[in-house]
Measured scan of single mutants.
Amino acid sequence: MSRVPSPPPPAEMSSGPVAESWCYTQIKVVKFSYMWTINNFSFCREEMGEVIKSSTFSSGANDKLKWCLRVNPKGLDEESKDYLSLYLLLVSCPKSEVRAKFKFSILNAKGEETKAMESQRAYRFVQGKDWGFKKFIRRDFLLDEANGLLPDDKLTLFCEVSVVQDSVNISGQNTMNMVKVPECRLADELGGLWENSRFTDCCLCVAGQEFQAHKAILAARSPVFSAMFEHEMEESKKNRVEINDVEPEVFKEMMCFIYTGKAPNLDKMADDLLAAADKYALERLKVMCEDALCSNLSVENAAEILILADLHSADQLKTQAVDFINYHASDVLETSGWKSMVVSHPHLVAEAYRSLASAQCPFLGPPRKRLKQS
């Protein structure tokens, strides 16, 4: 649940008159999402009104509101027999009622949201009550392989729920002597030191190019640089560091992050930047690179990204790559990247197969709970 924001200063709310007192009302909304995959969808019983329910879910471990999704594969009634019906059901509720908006969509073979439908307002739910769409999607369109909505005969539904909580009022009075504290510009100011090479005390040599930097900042941000300058190493004695395995453009992006906490060109060089972040123990930059690479996972590059993640101990990226390969196994196994990995990294192939087997055979063990970014 997000923290209630402070109200904007009255002088910034309007260029008009300023009242002596004010009130700011925040209506709290808890948002969460749920993904439900139905394997072997074409084998569902086709009687009209037949119901399939998901397991229950909530916004978190401490949330007492429990929900589930309900599907009628062949419609709810005679009117909707040519459609799939989809509903959000409130299973248990400690209150007399709650209000919530919802959005349903289908994830296609690429994991993209399609055929989205959402409620136009927050509906009133009581325990045992459901709301949804009797005519969510035509069955003939859903079952047509050309539309790519049932890869490997799996129907994957994605649901986003927004639950309306209580409202909170914050009130106060205006004073004539309003003090406005300026925003912190530390990142910009440190970035200026790097860009202008002011007050530098060490030189970093990268592929024949020299960059002036500040030992204190490098040591504070990177345990690797800290070790170089702290001990009686040649880098500490000469205040000069030779860097041979990072390209200059990648190095500059890494230094921008060290000084400012930002990497504006990360998406263009996420793979190389991940390697640099791993070498210099820049954990936050490493996770930022993992996130960017996750966003660009595809059938063509899944094997290469899995190898990269394994090489640099990028655990979150590795998990996402394995899950992606499992979901698109029939396509990924035909790529040149996968065939190369079979020869060069057989242990990763074995890991992917083990994960695929456990996903398809849940009876082999208890269900695993899916539970950071600093």
Rank of each mutant, 00 (worst) to 15 (best):
S42Y: 04
P366C: 10
W194H: 06
C44W: 05
K238M: 01
F363A: 15
F125A: 00
S167K: 10
L76I: 15
R45A: 04
V342F: 12
K103Q: 15
S21K: 11
L293N: 15
F211C: 12
S374E: 14
C205E: 15
A292R: 12
S374M: 10
L65S: 13
E304I: 03
S167V: 05
F211V: 14
L293F: 05
F32M: 14
L186A: 09
A100H: 01
Y280I: 01
W338L: 05
G128S: 11
S295I: 10
E79G: 11
H328I: 06
P5L: 03
N301T: 14
N39L: 02
N39D: 04
P7W: 14
H231M: 15
L218Y: 10
A220E: 14
Q212F: 15
R99F: 15
E12Y: 13
A100G: 01
M117P: 13
L293E: 13
G208I: 10
F125W: 02
Y327C: 04
S15L: 09
G49D: 02
K135R: 07
A11M: 11
S85M: 15
N244S: 05
R185M: 07
D323N: 04
Q316G: 09
N265S: 02
G75H: 08
I27L: 04
A359W: 06
N169I: 02
F324R: 00
T25C: 05
L371E: 05
A292F: 08
A263M: 06
N108S: 01
R139N: 02
F229E: 13
K318S: 05
I243T: 02
C44P: 09
S330T: 03
F229G: 14
P10T: 12
K64W: 12
C159R: 00
Y87F: 08
L317M: 12
A270H: 03
D144G: 07
K110S: 10
A61E: 05
E46F: 09
L186T: 09
E46K: 02
N177L: 09
A357T: 02
K31Q: 11
E210A: 12
G132H: 00
K64F: 12
M1T: 01
A146D: 07
T114W: 08
F43R: 13
S358W: 08
G172E: 02
W22G: 01
A122F: 08
K129P: 12
S167N: 03
M228D: 14
E78T: 14
K28Q: 12
L186V: 01
K369G: 04
F102C: 00
F158D: 14
P248T: 04
E20I: 09
M341N: 00
L88S: 01
K154A: 15
K215Y: 09
L84Q: 01
F104H: 14
I52V: 13
A216T: 08
G132Y: 00
